[in-house]
């Protein structure tokens, strides 16, 4: 049976862990990444490898009232069987990588909609990895307004 003394020891270790943890959490959040860092980490490429494409459409508000919940819709007039995956990046977020969607012919079309969090005004970028190894990209600049609640 757990004695009163043992209980306090366990509680003490738990409290110490909780106090130490915020320091580590803070540090991991504090590591900012550039778009190139994120592209390299996720796809092994840089912005130079991205080919601008008018076949991709990124739909998002030009002005977002708050960055907490920004709707983003990506579609592409490219046959799904030619596409391997679709990625979304927010260029100026502390961690630009947002999502990866694997595309198969069963999808029928290249389409994905979601809601993203944005730290500040930034391009919202869609990157499509083609089966031939090339990368197509398009973006929409979304302004995140500053403001307050009254």
């Amino acid at each position: 049976m757990l004695s009163r003394r043992d209980l306090f020891k366990v509680a003490g270790v738990g409290a110490a862990t909780l106090l130490v943890a915020p320091g580590f959490v803070g540090q991991s959040f504090a590591a900012k990444k550039s778009l190139d860092d994120a592209l390299k980490e996720k796809l092994g490429i840089t912005q130079k490898d991205l080919q601008a494409s008018e076949l991709i459409k990124v739909k998002a508000p030009t002005i977002a009232e708050s960055g907490a919940n920004v709707p983003v819709e990506v579609s592409a007039k490219i046959p799904a069987q030619q596409v391997e995956a679709l990625y979304i990046f927010i260029d100026k977020n502390p961690n630009p990588y947002v999502a990866q969607v694997d595309i198969s012919p069963a999808n029928g079309e290249v389409y994905f909609a979601t809601r993203v969090k944005m730290g500040k005004t930034s391009p919202v970028r869609a990157v499509i990895k083609m089966k031939d190894g090339s990368y197509l990209s398009a973006f929409k600049e979304v302004k995140v307004t500053v403001g307050g609640c009254g």
Partner: peptide, 10 residues
């Protein structure tokens, strides 16, 4: 307040 969220998270 979403703007507080913005300040605290970014």
């Amino acid at each position: 307040c979403p703007y507080c969220w913005q300040m605290e998270n970014y």
